[in-house]
């Protein structure tokens, strides 16, 4: 996924070029492009008058932003307390082994980005894994290959 400068401009216009809406602007760009591309950040900085240093600080402070391109599918392993004590870390280990990446990385074929999330609020179904917008509950190591198979 990439983003055109026209799209960035239209997002900026939607938010009135308001620096107070910077997080929302970046969220829209991230949604469109899958990450925050440098040229888009530069454009936002120019148009809102917010320095690149400050943009960078926002981009790194909040967990939902990525400054590097992500894969086609986002695999999020919940690391909430309920998931942790019901074996979430073992599910993460299994995903790391199967996808051959560490959490936060993208597979070489750009198919999957493996991430951890602090809590998806589906604690009753712990351990939980979310792939794109689909939530899987009571995941075991055994179920991991089956879940991944759904995504091409």
């Amino acid at each position: 996924m990439e983003i055109t400068m026209d799209k960035v401009d239209s997002i900026l216009l939607d938010h009135n070029y308001d620096p107070a809406s910077l997080i929302s602007i970046l969220q829209s760009v991230q949604k469109e492009a899958g990450y925050l591309p440098y040229p888009a950040m530069l454009r936002i900085s120019e148009r809102t008058g917010v320095s690149m240093a400050k943009m960078q600080s926002l981009g790194t402070f909040y967990r939902s932003f990525s400054l590097v391109p992500t894969g086609k599918h986002k695999v999020c392993v919940c690391m909430g307390t309920a998931c942790h004590i019901r074996g979430g870390h073992q599910v993460l280990d299994k995903l790391e082994r199967d996808l051959e990446v560490k959490a936060g990385e993208t597979t070489a074929d750009r198919k999957f980005t493996l991430e951890t999330v602090r809590c998806l609020g589906c604690c009753s179904l712990a351990p939980v894994v979310k792939v794109d917008e689909n939530i899987y509950g009571r995941v075991t190591q055994n179920k991991v290959p089956k879940i991944l198979r759904d995504y091409t």
Binding site: S24, Q27, L58, F61, S64, F65
Partner: peptide
């Protein structure tokens, strides 16, 4: 409605306010 950026500390009042104003929380 303002969507958060994913930072636990933003549950703290003053951090949350900073975030609403487009700052790091």
């Amino acid at each position: 409605i303002v969507r958060g950026g994913g930072a636990f500390v933003c549950g703290e009042e003053t951090a949350l306010i900073a975030s609403v104003m487009g700052q790091p929380g």
